[in-house]
Design a protein around this nucleic acid. Structure first.
Lengths: 213, 213
DNA sequence: GTCTATACGCGGATAGAC
DNA sequence: GTCTATCCGCGTATAGAC
């Protein structure tokens, strides 16, 4: 088999082109937004025709998916292999929210596509299904560890709590993006962690959660 | 001033046309999705030219906004002026989630637009800002009442909790839409209510939520 | 106010050059 | 495999009929 990824392989030009396109697209998508940029413009910027670009990326969504994947690598590779785990990891998620609060355009890009990719026919569907699945697994693992460490209640459903953590992040993002000055995403998520984890620290009442007086 | 809304007013035809268009659009948007339907098709269905339709609705998003507004009226008018309030209202929100779980296409429609409308230049921006503002106010009011009734802790930030309730709903919707068979939206939200309200029932620990052992 | 014809750039699909 | 020319329906903008 020939070397598809090597710099001097037979398909080296194509690989380089793809990289070039993804770079240009990331730059312009993050700066001006997905809808505001046309494929023809990106193509011209890298010295290609509209159809030439679409040889490498079958659709605009396909290109966007590649851009997001690339962005994922950029953000996850450097560190993120942090040494925190269990309850410490859960608490550290607050920092992720705080970081997101500084990149509204990119966050909107992810949020927009994640909802649209909900359609099974969407080009990025598989990507986002996998992305959330992995995120849930990681969160579930740390929550389970926190439970085993005795940091939260023993009867906690780690999977449901993992879903809720991601849901709180995503949902707060929408409200924050709509009214950045009015909705304090970081504070609300912090309250979620504090209160939610506090209740996690004690077993549920026998009646299943009815408020006490 | 002339009667703009009456059935026999001078602009009655336009009002009737708008209604007709909204009806047709709601039907076809909810059935086949927003992107899959063209304005030309809707126009033809109500006996109008493409441009004729755009006289009544300046853009496709504009029409969608009208459709969603109409859908809001349909769902909110019948009852929903339920007699529950305070903690009972909060618990009843679980039924709303359960209801949503039966209308995936419409939920995706709302979810998609709510994220896109995050852009201040989006035609539906004002609509969604107002929609979430009202939803937060209602939730905040009931949470505050629950607090005053002694059903939840006295130091609860009702506004932040209101944001979290809406966020949990929205965020869970995305994960559920991505993998309906794998993510149990209703169960996860139920757990959110149970655990979150349980912790709300007791004051926060002095250290601000650090897990107890 | 109600409505139409025409033109623009867009994302996408097809056929084919090299 | 890499890339282009051409055509399609789309949402949108403008000029104008009635």
């Amino acid at each position: 088999m020939s070397d598809r990824t090597g710099a001097r392989g037979p398909y080296a030009r194509g690989v380089a082109r793809r990289q070039e396109i993804v770079h240009a697209a990331l730059e312009v998508f993050a700066t001006r937004g997905y809808d505001a940029v046309s494929l023809r413009e990106i193509a011209a910027q890298v010295g290609l025709s509209h159809t030439g670009l679409r040889h490498h990326f079958a659709s605009k969504e396909d290109l966007l998916t590649a851009v997001l994947r690339y962005k994922d690598e950029l953000t996850l590779t450097p560190d993120e292999q942090v040494d925190v785990s269990g309850i410490a990891w859960v608490r550290a998620s607050r920092d992720v929210v705080a970081l997101n609060a500084r990149q509204p355009l990119l966050i909107r890009l992810f949020a927009t596509l994640s909802v649209q990719a909900t359609d099974p026919a969407h080009p990025a569907h598989t990507y986002f299904v996998e992305r959330y699945r992995i995120a849930r697994e990681i969160a579930t693992r740390h929550l389970a560890q926190a439970r085993d460490d005795g940091d939260i209640a023993a009867d906690v459903d780690a999977e449901h709590c993992a879903e809720l953590m991601l849901a709180a992040m995503d949902g707060l993002q929408v409200q924050w993006l709509l009214e950045p000055d009015r909705v304090d995403m970081v504070a609300a998520y912090g309250q979620f962690l504090d209160r939610f984890l506090a209740v996690l620290a004690v077993p549920l009442p026998e009646d299943g959660g009815t408020a006490q007086r």
